[in-house]
Design a protein around this nucleic acid. Structure first.
Lengths: 340, 340
DNA sequence: GTGAAAGCGCTAACAA
DNA sequence: TTGTTAGCGCTTTCAC
């Protein structure tokens, strides 16, 4: 692969001039510039970003760590982040923590070794403390926030979003509404549970503590917790709300495995969309997060931090509104669906 | 961030010795090694991969370019590639071409600038010639092959796989089986169509050319082609086979939009799974590709090329078998499904 | 076994 | 406006 030195020789100028032409930061005479551009074309020169990064101590690359790339929510976040990055001349490298904090730590170390300029992080699980602090390397937390620490973050207003889902079920006449959460070590899971309580409180319906179930991000565990709750027909809730896509998936499987169907035997609403397609039945009523926007806003904040080099100062906390997509599983056909 | 020079100073040795300790390629005395390791711990040293790459001219990174990260097939391929890479000490950077050849070319240029050691490529669309040749930078084509060029590649046996799907429909008694393909500039689309013909030929049923439809990878266009074919009840096929996930999605939407349902009004089988979940109805009978294995085998071949530096020599062409997952949309319940 | 030093390709400061 | 040069952090000879 050709280097600037070779370009310089071919063009008959110094390598400094070549660099100036390429960077455009220093004006270069018309004749020299022409010769350099010609040489670039002739040799099919591609700048060596490795060398540039070593020199400038900037890679124009940010890492994004997500727990699981096969869950529909995360690719959408990545998309949003990627396009915001591209607009600003940054590259994105995607890494998957597989829901493991150890792997997450490895990935962070790796990204640091690769000298990324910053990291967008969706934490693997409920770490006690943030796995990374901005005083170290700029980081913006997405979706899942470390509890009780001041960090830059973008997520939905979890409490309001969950409340909206529960209010919907209450308005459909349900009273025995169970909630199945993920690990309550995660702040957003806590918030979503809080939204549940808040909805009940506002409507004056008493909460039944026995209908509050929580589990992990492990599908088997989720299913077992859920099955147990659905077991006895007499105590069975008439509606079920799950606080994340994985729990929703587990719950839906459990419902089907129990021989029940939705919305006939039990109404069902979940946080996040279980599939990105809307042509499958049962169509799931869900709380839809602005996934792409979470990614793009996060990236904007991150690149801002990188460019201004402001590692201190007040943290940005962005709370975006979620949307309730009423479909079939919660029990009504409000109107003929347009999409089909 | 600490450098080897700083480690050297702290440990009281030369920076060459530090490097030898870290790389392990040159034996180092017990005492020096201890001091260096201690310094590494004390300063929380992270090697600068940028500098190392500049020096060694190797990044231990490979790029993978996929058309669309939100289509379930591709994340699975990425997963397989990633884990094979990790086992061999390589990193993966994921890039998305969005189905555009121009974007693909940009991404290739970018990855070259980043000096990746090789590329796994799922081409955006039917390019006339391979966008990248291994004499340039090691590349392995996955899933979609450039027609008529000798390249390293991994994909399923498209013809046999499609044939399997059609044989299934024929065995269900269907004779008017339509096929909807993607762009026939892609070799694997051609092959899948060939499998269709082959199945008919072997079974002695004549092919009706009017039931061979083809379109692009644009969902709207797919739907319009499909709608047209489904329009008149008299000529309507009794079964529809689509050769890729996107066409399958478009077809299913069209079927529903036409007020038809599957398998009642029309049997339906598609290449690729339309959703990774099996709890939605209608459950789609589909040709399932070993996505993860496509990724991992491709990565093995690629890293092999990189390590041996063999840019010439015979190309590896891996053909993996696909699997027919009989579910509901093709018309029978062969047995009670275990998964639910 | 260890240290000194060259140089990977680039940028940026300085000199001319 | 252009050329010269130091040096980013690392690996890798080459002496010692």
């Amino acid at each position: 692969m050709p280097t600037q030195k070779e370009l310089a020789k071919l063009a008959g100028v110094s390598s400094g001039t070549v660099s100036n032409v390429i960077s455009g930061s220093v004006p270069v005479g018309e004749r020299s510039r022409e010769k350099v551009l010609k040489a670039i074309r002739e040799l099919n020169y591609q700048p060596n970003l490795i060398a540039r990064s070593l020199r400038t101590n900037r890679t124009h690359t940010v890492g994004i760590i997500v727990p699981d790339i096969t869950i529909p929510f995360f690719p959408k976040v990545i998309r949003g982040a990627e396009s915001a990055a591209r607009e600003r001349g940054y590259f994105v490298v995607v890494a998957e923590s597989e829901g493991s904090s150890e792997r997450e730590a490895e990935l962070i170390a790796l990204l640091r070794s690769q000298r990324v300029d910053g990291i967008l992080l969706i934490v693997a699980a409920g770490a006690k403390r943030p796995p990374l602090s901005s005083s170290d390397l700029p980081v913006v937390y997405l979706d899942r926030l470390p509890d009780g620490f001041e960090v830059d973050s973008v997520c939905v207003d979890d409490r309001a979003a969950a409340e909206m889902g529960i209010v919907h079920l209450l308005s459909m006449g349900h009273r025995r509404i169970a909630i199945l959460t993920g690990p309550l070590t995660l702040k957003n899971e806590q918030e979503r549970l809080r939204g549940y309580r808040q909805a009940f409180k506002k409507s004056g319906v008493p909460v039944q503590e026995s209908l509050i179930w929580s589990s992990s991000f492990n599908l088997e565990e989720v299913m077992s917790v859920c099955q147990k709750g659905l077991l006895k027909p007499r105590n069975r809730p008439t509606a079920l709300f799950t606080t994340n896509g994985l729990s929703g998936m587990g719950a839906l499987r459990s419902i089907i495995a129990s021989g029940l169907s939705t919305p006939r035997d039990i109404a069902f609403v979940t946080f996040d969309e279980l599939t990105s397609e809307d042509i499958f039945r049962p169509a799931i009523t869900s709380i839809v997060q602005p996934a792409s926007e979470i990614g793009s806003r996060g990236m904007e904040i991150l690149i801002d931090r990188i460019n201004t080099g402001s590692v201190t100062g007040p943290r940005k906390k962005i709370r975006l509104p979620a949307m309730l997509a009423v479909r079939e599983s919660s029990g009504v056909m409000l109107q003929k669906r347009k999409t089909l």
